[in-house]
Amino acid sequence: MKVVVCVKQIPDPADPGALDPETRTLKRDVKLILDESDSYGVEMALQLVDAAGEGEVILVSMAPNGERSGLATALAMGAASAILISDPELVGSDALTTAKLLATAVKDQGADLIIAGSESSDGYTGVVPEQIAGVLDLPSVTAAKSIEVDGSSIKVQRQTDGGYDDVTCPLPAVVSVTAGVVEPRYPSFKGIMAAKNKPVEEKSAADLGFDASQVGWAGAGQEIIEVTDAPKRQAGEVIEDDGEAFTKIVAYLENMKVI
C-alpha cells in the first residue's frame, strides 16, 4: 500500500512568530519544523502500511529555502522518501496554487491514499486537502479520526460535533486527518540515523510544469488586505463569596446548560 502524506514545515509555534509588514504573511526565513498537526497524518499512514504488511509512506511538502528539518522528523518516524517543492518563485502562493503544486507532485506517485492534516498550525486556511482532491478529481473525506482499509475502499470515521459519521469511500482518495486522534511516535535512534540516507527529491515550479505567472504573488487569486489583532478576551465575571456564592455558580452553570 502506497500512502502519500502532505506535510507542512512551519516556524516553531513555541517561538513567537512575526508577520512581514509588506506582504502580511508569516516570516518563514527561520528554521522550520514539522507541523504537529501533520504528525498525526504521518502516524496514521505508517500504521496503515504496517497493517497492510507492505508498501510505503511518501511525503510531499512545499517549503522555502530547501528546508528539510521537518521532513527529517517525518522520515525519522518511518516515511520512506520525500518530495520537496521549493523555489523562490513560490513565495506568496495562495492555498489553491499550493494545492495545484502538491497535487501535481502527488499525481505521478501512484498513491492508493493521500493523507493531509485538516489545517496547518500557521496558515489555518483548512482548504488545501480538499483542493488537492478537486485538482486530482478524487473523492475527499474530511476530519477523519480513524481510517481502515477494506480492499479497494476505506472505512473512515469522520468526526462531527455530535460524534462521528461512518463513511465508506473508494480508493484512491484524499483524507484529511483531525489533530490528536492518534499518538505520533517519537523517532527512534535508528529511525533518526536512517533518515539521513532517505531520498528527498527537490522540485522547482518549472519541474512541475508551472511558469512564474501561475505561482507566487503573480498567480495568487487571493490577497491579504489587512491584518488585525484578535479581540482581547473580555474580563470574566467575579463572584464575591458571601457564603451564597455557590448558588450563583450553580445558576451560571445551569444557564450554560452544563448541569
Binding site: A14, S69, A72, A76, Y186, P187, F189, I192, A195, K196
Partner: peptide, 28 residues
C-alpha cells in the same frame, strides 16, 4: 515540560542531534 529554553545549537556537533534531542525529550 518540553525543554525549549536552552539553545542547543551551541553544543550540537552532528546534524541529527537536534532531532535526537527532541525525540528523547518527548519520550522522557
Amino acid at each position: 515540560m518540553a525543554a525549549t529554553m536552552f539553545s542547543s545549537s551551541l553544543v550540537d556537533t552532528a546534524d541529527h542531534h537536534p532531532e535526537l534531542r527532541s525525540s528523547v525529550a518527548g519520550v522522557a
